[in-house]
Write a protein that binds this DNA or RNA. Structure first.
Lengths: 239, 239
DNA sequence: CGGCCTGTTGATGCGACTCAATTCAGGTGG
DNA sequence: CCACCTGAATTGAGTCGCATCAACAGGCCG
């Protein structure tokens, strides 16, 4: 698992270069960061860490997808965030609380770089650029969490789904207009947990949107046929 | 509104000294920060900033209480955070997005110090301690947001209320045990919006807890009579 | 006093979760 | 290559939590 030679260190540095968190960080610092990072692989379905366990560092995901989730005593789960290649996760756990606030689980076979807390903090103190990037990263995450809170407290499922579809379209094509299509990630059950609902309700809501002529659905593929109405639904307005 | 002399600058520095964000920051830096901070007062019910407006800086609340909230097209509102004296707010808006993600409103007459974005960022780059404190502050806020997400997605109103009551008790007395009492802040309507519900439901839920013999209620004062059961309700377990 | 705001209580309706049955797709092994 | 199993997705019927609407009591202030 640990660093076994120069080649591997070079490999790691190459990964760091494309990550937002390390953008603008001087070459020498990048080198040092690559050396303190530890490669860790996880198989599909493996738990990377449990909520409540002591936080020993944060992760950079270089391959695969993972979910960050909370689960209830009854077994229901809520997905706080889906993380893909090039993204970091559990950053916040390094700075305040000693324990992870959620559980991380691999959705497929994953490759990560793990940054141990103490050495990373030492490094951070010496690199204003890195600190600034980290602040920006946390800020964006907070914005994301705030949006989810708004959705859960003020919007119903159809509005959350509509917003999600619009975001996906924007992300995939850089714009939103009639006829654009995109794939849904992973399973619909996961998407349901991400939207704060369950599979059955998501299924019904999707088919309602379809029958309203707002979208078309085939397999895991969505085509937007009426962006204007979809936006209205996403805004939560009833009439 | 702006700095009008040495005395006022001294006053401001005194305020900064007791704020977590500035703990451990050298005296000289504190001096500079006090100079760039601008005093701003707001009357009860005044809006400090609107969601979506361009973020020009963040605030330190020195006197009074404010709420950070989202509101729906139908007029319903959700309170993300209640902020009291000595706390900062809108910090995250400074680092990433150019606009405030929520609306801030004064619940009573307030006194604040406003830190304009650009000069503060310049200062931050030169002060590792300040950067570190800011990271810790954002991390704690994220933890708070994550808990609220968990509550809204997985727990029902009685569980959220129970958790809130336990937190208040812990905050007020440093421990949780039978017979301890505390006051509810502001109005119950506000508390309801904070818990993601409405006044009527909060009222019913409180009286249900009372009839179960878990708490006693008189005016705005709560006495915990059965901590064990209250904790069980807060955990969300059905049986 | 009369307005206004907050809080309480009751009746009703809607959205979404639960439970259960069925279909379907993918993967496995005989 | 087909029978089998498993997990995902869909659909229907029933229930529950909570918001909505409405009426009313109490406290505060002009």
């Amino acid at each position: 698992m640990a660093d076994t030679g120069k080649e591997e260190a070079g490999q790691k540095k190459k990964i760091l270069r494309d990550v937002y968190l390390f953008s603008g960080v001087p070459e020498a610092d990048l080198e040092a960061l690559a050396h303190l990072a530890v490669s860790k692989a996880f198989a599909r379905q493996a738990t990377i860490f449990w909520e409540g366990r002591e936080a020993q560092g944060f992760y950079l995901l270089s391959r695969g997808y993972i979910k960050l989730m909370k689960s209830s005593p009854e077994g229901k789960e809520y997905i706080i965030r889906l993380v893909g290649p090039g993204e970091t996760f559990a950053e916040a756990a390094v700075f305040s609380d000693a324990s992870y606030p959620a559980t991380a689980m691999a959705l497929e076979d994953c490759q990560t770089l793990f940054f141990p807390k103490a050495p990373f903090l030492r490094h951070l103190a010496a690199s204003p650029t890195l600190a600034r990037n980290m602040l920006a990263t946390l800020s964006r995450l907070m914005l994301h969490l705030t949006r989810q809170l708004e959705d859960l407290s003020l919007k119903e499922v159809s509005a959350r789904l509509a917003r999600y579809l619009l975001e996906r379209c924007q992300e995939r094509h850089g714009r939103i207009e009639k006829g654009l299509a995109f794939e849904l990630p992973t399973t619909k059950t996961h998407l349901a947990a991400y939207l704060g609902t369950i599979g059955e309700t998501l299924s019904r809501t999707l088919s309602r949107l379809k029958s309203q002529g707002v979208i078309e659905v085939e397999k895991g593929r969505i085509t937007i046929t009426d962006p204007a109405v979809l936006k209205k639904i996403a805004s939560g307005k009833k009439r």
